[in-house]
Design a protein around this nucleic acid. Structure first.
Lengths: 128, 128
DNA sequence: GTAATCGCCGTACCTATGTACGGAATCAAG
DNA sequence: CTTGATTCCGTACATAGGTACGGCGATTAC
């Protein structure tokens, strides 16, 4: 029962092509292909893909994940720094979205107070 | 003093190519080109681009902006609906980011409590 | 009138993260 | 041994929103 690419992919809930893509990106090793035939994925590789997927869930981009992977046995402080950068990026994005939320809310309130359906405060606010 | 493309672009603080791109996307009309020579952009077009840029600041995608532009003299209720959809998308994204923030914070706290710089709770949590 | 600048047009390229495709090779089942 | 399913590989395509380029024509400055 060898770990073929489709087995790995379905076990991880990802597309076969995604595995191949990670190989091309250098995130995982291309398993040594036997003289002839299909490739077998060692468990390490499967776990590495799990790591990638979990890191993505934390909002890391593939480039950053490559970095994380290379930090595997580097000091914790380096990993920590990466995570802190990510955290502040997340906070910034949230602030952006909050501004947006306020703006949209403000416009929608104006629509609610508008009795004439033939003019729209939103459109008007967007116009010069 | 005609409104050439570079004048329009610099006035709006955008790239010339962006103007051309909007033309290709059908967001603004290709100005009628004189028999021979350069195109002149009417003020309406300039204002339309302003509208586009402001809408982008509110988080609308170009497709949605095309929609907004076509809603120009449609009932306010339709515009309102679009804005409401956008608002709930924004809220969802914020919730996602909040979850992320919590997760990252949690991991960073663990790093802070970690005395051994040679192992990293973040890496460990990402590993199977 | 000629040089330097500007605009036009089609097309290619960019980032990020995959997906899809097609033909050849390989493997598994019967 | 044949048939059907898998895999391999390179390459193209997808999304979103642009940006860049190159050759040629138009225009403007002097």
């Amino acid at each position: 029962m060898t770990n073929t690419i489709s087995k790995v992919a379905s076990e991880l809930g990802i597309n076969i092509e995604t595995v191949r893509f990670y190989e091309r990106r250098g995130l995982i090793d291309q398993p040594i292909k036997p003289e002839v035939g299909y490739r077998h994925y060692p468990d390490d590789t499967v776990n590495r893909i799990r790591f990638i997927k979990r890191s993505q869930e934390l909002g890391f981009a593939l480039d950053e994940i490559a970095n994380l992977l290379s930090l595997n046995d580097k000091p914790c402080s380096q990993v920590q720094e990466l995570a802190e950068q990510k955290l502040s990026a997340v906070k910034e994005k949230m602030a952006d979205l909050q501004r947006l939320e306020k703006a949209l809310n403000g416009l929608l309130v104006q629509c609610d107070n508008n009795e004439d359906d033939n003019r729209c405060p939103i459109i008007e606010s967007l116009q010069p």
